[in-house]
Design a binder for these strands. Structure first.
Lengths: 117, 117
DNA sequence: ATCATAGTTGAGCAATTGTGCAACTGTAAA
DNA sequence: TTTACAGTTGCACAATTGCTCAACTATGAT
């Protein structure tokens, strides 16, 4: 990031580059964008989101479906809760989770379309 | 992930859960999906993809725009190359990069729509 | 051939992240 | 109240990741 690392051709002072610089995303937008994608960048969370896109499920159901510990699932559900991607409903000792963001399904399905070409 | 961790309510043997299990994504799909999202989960790569969605740029241009070292940018460009999200064109000593995947722009813009509500 | 420059690459480091473990909360049944 | 169970949480640790540094390749100019 030192000035010396920048090439001397001055290509970066062209109109083209200035225009890109002008349009560049703000730091906050970049962070929210990469943050959103990073939630979907883990295979456990992908499986959870897929499962919840089909049915409302309790923590135990999810652990069973993913063959993972209750603890691991709960940790990931917290991530999804913090990101407001899932909501939950308590019923006795059990907690039922479901998706709480229509955008995320769209994003998720766009990703599916991508990998399926 | 031990059996003991699974609850004893047998909720996971309901028809509902069996049906989700039947529809569940294959491991390979899950990995490709989370892999795709993980490429977009880093703010540096988000900026690079955004910049390249506007213009074809050389490594130096990108480093200048992102205020990062040539090396750091080159490392990230390799990630994008390996994922076949960018292509490059050599011209003398310089290397010009551009997007090489129409899907990724769609996914990217869907993400933008998400954060902008 | 020699030198300078644009970019690549591997090693190493610091920061982040996913999961297991164990202790904890809260609800229900005995 | 006591006990059991569904789920949560903090800590620790291993694995991954992004960047720097320095050495390297490749191209062009002298």
């Amino acid at each position: 990031m030192a000035e010396k690392d920048i090439c001397e051709v001055k290509c970066m002072e062209s109109e083209k580059v200035k225009e890109v610089k002008r349009q560049m995303l703000r730091e906050e937008e970049v962070n929210r964008l990469s943050g959103t994608f990073s939630i979907l960048s883990d295979s456990t969370r992908v499986k959870i989101i897929f499962a919840l896109s089909k049915e409302e499920l309790c923590v135990c159901d999810i652990a069973y479906l993913l063959n993972l510990s209750i603890s691991a699932v709960s940790h990931q559900l917290r991530v999804l809760r913090n990101a407001r991607l899932v909501k939950y409903r308590k019923q006795g000792k059990m907690v039922f989770y479901s998706l709480d963001d229509e955008h995320i399904s769209t994003l998720f399905n766009e990703g599916l379309k991508h990998i399926r070409e």
